[in-house]
Design a protein around this nucleic acid. Sequence first.
DNA 1: CCGCATCCCATGTGATACTG
DNA 2: CAGTATCACATGGGATGCGG
Lengths: 213, 213
Amino acid sequence: MVARDYGQYDGIARALELVGERWALLIVRDLLVGPRRYGELAAGLPRIPTNILATRLKELQAEGIIRRAPRSRVILYELTPFGRELEPVVLALGAWGTKALGEPREEQVITPDAITIALRSAFRSEVASSLPATSYAARIGAGGLLVRVDGPALTVSPGAGPADLAFEARPGIQRVLTGELAPASAVESGVLEVLDGPVALLDRFADTFRLVA
Amino acid sequence: MVARDYGQYDGIARALELVGERWALLIVRDLLVGPRRYGELAAGLPRIPTNILATRLKELQAEGIIRRAPRSRVILYELTPFGRELEPVVLALGAWGTKALGEPREEQVITPDAITIALRSAFRSEVASSLPATSYAARIGAGGLLVRVDGPALTVSPGAGPADLAFEARPGIQRVLTGELAPASAVESGVLEVLDGPVALLDRFADTFRLVA
DNA sequence: CCGCATCCCATGTGATACTG
DNA sequence: CAGTATCACATGGGATGCGG
């Protein structure tokens, strides 16, 4: 039951002992969006074997990173305050990994929780602060997300709804986030398609959400 | 040879495919300090099996994170620009893990590279900017480090030398970095011992190096 | 020596089936 | 729905070998 340790007295080694095992940080990623049930976690991590999910949940719990929160009949898993402090780590990892994403392969899924965190990672609150409040309805793959930016605050929720700008994002969208691809070019190449609202708001979106070095 | 993938089109998943395997980020940590030889890496990671080190080095190379740099007879490994962009990730991990460090166990080693990165992680350049340039000679375990703070710049080098303040740090020192333990209390409890120079500089040190949430 | 490669065994992981 | 049980397999750990 002892985590396999690295034999070093060091913060990074300790962190890797706690959350360095396979799937652990992806579970944390999804829980950063909000409390989740066992089945919801399994659904957001399609390729995780159920025994591994069960094992990780127990380990993370024993380490004080997550906790079981029984809420009237259903069991929710949620991050502890200590676990929530992993947010900068997860965001930094995502910002770095996004640069190496490339094109999506056929079997790869895109989950709402993953996108939510990606947007949180790319969100530039200083930029948003100086812009008027804006809402975006984004369709990505099968799912829809409602993104609300109000001053320095960001809210992302699954589902549809009225918004200042509705658009569909297709593979290659990450190059808009990295600044590699300008919105205009993205529209031209079919990566972005405006469904409703002024096209100019795409620039605001790309300005608000950009991964910076 | 394909990295075991998570089946997700997501930056975090991609990052974990690239550097999520055991030992990978510790290798990156040491290379963040500077180019290192195979043997130096092995020495800084005492418990890594040599075949794993060799395997990781090849994988990281194939992924464009590190590169072999033959320098007149000796082979050095160094980070590529892409690999160097992992610094925020490593620092964030270290800051988080340091809070869960606890007391060092007998078999745990403390390496100069690990301390160097820990100091870099805790360094508050905005605080340092408003303080006079200061040098510290720290003895930790067997090794000695020379820490120079000059405005917003930080330099850490192994070895000894003249400094404004010389001190010895013992187990529990991480609690000074997390702000859990004030320098005065640390001296009282034997965690810190001033060897040479004005004790007051310890406060400056603790002010300059502090992990913040 | 340094920079690995090989071998063997312990452990972790993945797929599937199954149960309260 | 929320896990456990089982088993085949891949990976990691430790010791050792070996060529330049």
